[in-house]
Design a protein around this nucleic acid. Structure first.
Lengths: 350, 350
DNA sequence: TGTTAGCACTCCTAACAAATGAGTGCTAAT
DNA sequence: ATTAGCACTCATTTGTTAGGAGTGCTAACA
């Protein structure tokens, strides 16, 4: 709590500076503030206060004889203490999400798109990953000579499959036995709960077909495993062009956009949040706080949604540091609310 | 055949102009050519010839007192007649593709990436679509009360699945019958071959469960259907920043990059090629020839690959009109060769 | 003691002019 | 038919200037 550093007046001035800068993107001078605030102060007084604020690290000057802009510390203070918590709704999107639950992929892409259009920033949405998700149903079937199809269905009705090659064909009876074996041993378990004991027991029971069991388990680990192939949908990356501070040099812009293309990098930004059990809120990274270096001139706001028990994904927004935090965070909150627990709901409805 | 328009010398000069421009990206002047070509001519003579070439529409001047640059017509002539057909190999990639056939998605993404790094242009690869692909195996299973899982495997070992909700549970015996019904009627058929007759026969035989059959058929149509959701992998879009003529204005660059983000647009560029049976070669779109408006300042080169009977996808490269056509086309040719028929091969190997 | 007016100073930016130079078209000579 | 030479065009670069926004400091004031 370093609020003690700032008295009431300084706080008000800092607030005014940041809000003005959020709007204009231009360094803001003392005279502007002098007119802006209700507490009538002359520009000279403001100047003195600004000098203090600068010394404390909340604002900085791009160069002598320019106005001030917020520093990372300034933004942080704003987000933590100054920002109002408006509660406008984002109803259309909420509605949309609910109406289209079947086609998850398209919904997520659409969410990214609408959010980008809404906010004028770049957005990313990661598909839900099956962290902590439980096995509901496993089935092996003969598909072709030498080829077995393994299908795995999880609690959240996520379906994964893999073709397994086998050296010699398996007759139907054995197949039935294997299926029973797998289901009775694994159903209801989350990936983390499948330990060595379970595995060795399984293999023992499978006898000569233990290699197939191995393959199935591999598939399980692969498909339900962590960051393996988290799908990331992005939209509006070119919105970043709108903010000169991000795109003044072609190189800068290029690097940023590249990061969005390298979806796996984005995924990494997000994984830690997913695993962190207790974090269910909204995360704000300002400038260097972001784990991705290329985004050091940006702010990143992410929200973790949880479709159902342990089925989590992330929605993120990337923009300039002077982003409209209020708007962004409210958008995310509403979206999060719409998505949270949607699996349970849809199951109830059916 | 409008080659008659150009005598030998004009051809040589045009060739020189284009090649120089491909390298430098700068308008090329008469003096440069005068030194460049082996037929020793003074700059003045070149100027005369250039005036002719301009009148004929092969080259143009950005403004008075600038050098000449190739027009679309000029590039077209170059690609059709002037370009050499070098045959360097792209072995590393070929090797890579063969070694990683199992994980198609990752291969394709990687192909896009390597190709982009190799050429310094933007690349796109579409996942194979199941056009003309045949049903190999269908299976319904009870997954949960009121929920049936339908799995469809096609010739190319593409697996698709869908959860179908049913109002009342189906006992195992009925399920077996349904499965038999579906497989005996549909296996070996391509989507196009499933006509109304087949459908009505199926429904008739299914009796009271004809609604489930409908659902399965819908799923079939959806998953094997045309452009539905062709997946497109892109890479190196920011390479386009390297070419000033594409990124001089932020707006221009922005529009281009956006097109790459809107993958479905890219897909449309490609669909016609996929359906066109006899086209198995390499396509070059120069400037306005491209079906996508935003790419009117670019050249697009695409190759259609065919993993197996009717399982097709596209590899594409987008760059400035002054792209290194030779290199690009050779890269594509080699890649195409590596991918063609890969399904059949891998099946043989097993 | 906190606040304010005034002023000199800094530094960015826009505007304009001049210099540069690459390249052309035309003409006259070969 | 080819070429050298020359005048001319026009984008680009460079230098200069004027303007303006904003600051820090000082001195006066309540």
């Amino acid at each position: 709590m370093e609020e003690f550093e700032l008295d009431d007046r300084k706080t008000k001035i800092l607030n005014a500076i940041i809000r003005t800068y959020l709007e204009t993107g231009e360094p803001v001078g003392s005279r502007t503030i002098s007119k802006y605030t209700d507490l009538n102060l002359s520009s000279a007084t403001i100047r003195n206060e600004m000098a203090d604020l600068e010394e404390l690290g909340y604002i900085l000057q791009p160069h002598t004889s320019a106005g001030r802009i917020p520093s990372d510390k300034g933004y942080r203070f704003y987000v933590d203490h100054l920002m109002e918590d408006k509660n406008r709704e984002v109803d259309e999107m909420k509605q949309f999400v609910i109406e289209h639950t079947e086609k998850m992929e398209q919904v997520l892409q659409q969410v990214a798109k609408v959010l980008a259009a809404n906010t004028n920033y770049a957005t990313m949405v990661t598909a839900p990953s099956y962290h902590r998700n439980k096995v509901k149903f496993i089935q092996l079937s003969n598909v072709d000579t030498g080829q077995i199809l393994a299908v795995i269905v999880t609690e959240g009705n996520m379906v994964k499959n893999k073709i397994i090659s086998v050296s010699e064909p398996i007759d139907n009876e054995t197949m039935l036995k294997l299926n029973f074996l797998l289901n009775s041993n694994l159903n209801g378990l989350a990936l983390e709960e499948i330990n060595l004991k379970t595995i060795s027991r399984l293999k023992e029971q499978a006898g000569i077909h233990s290699d197939i069991v191995s393959d199935v388990l591999d598939t399980l680990a692969e498909t339900m495993g962590a960051d393996e192939d988290i799908r990331v949908y992005t939209s509006g990356t070119t919105n970043l062009f709108k903010y000169p501070e991000l795109s003044d040099s072609a190189e800068k812009a290029s690097k940023l956009i590249s990061t969005f293309e390298e979806k796996q990098q984005l995924a990494s930004l997000v994984t830690e949040n997913l695993l962190n059990e207790e974090n269910t809120g909204i995360q704000v990274y300002i400038g260097n706080e972001s784990p991705i270096q290329t985004m050091k001139d940006c702010s990143v706001v992410t929200a973790t949604y949880e479709l159902g028990e342990g089925v989590r994904g992330t929605i993120g927004i990337v923009g300039p540091k002077r982003m409209d935090y209020e708007k962004v965070m409210n958008n995310l909150k509403t979206l999060k609310k719409s998505l949270d627990g949607i699996l349970d709901k849809s199951r109830e409805e059916v």
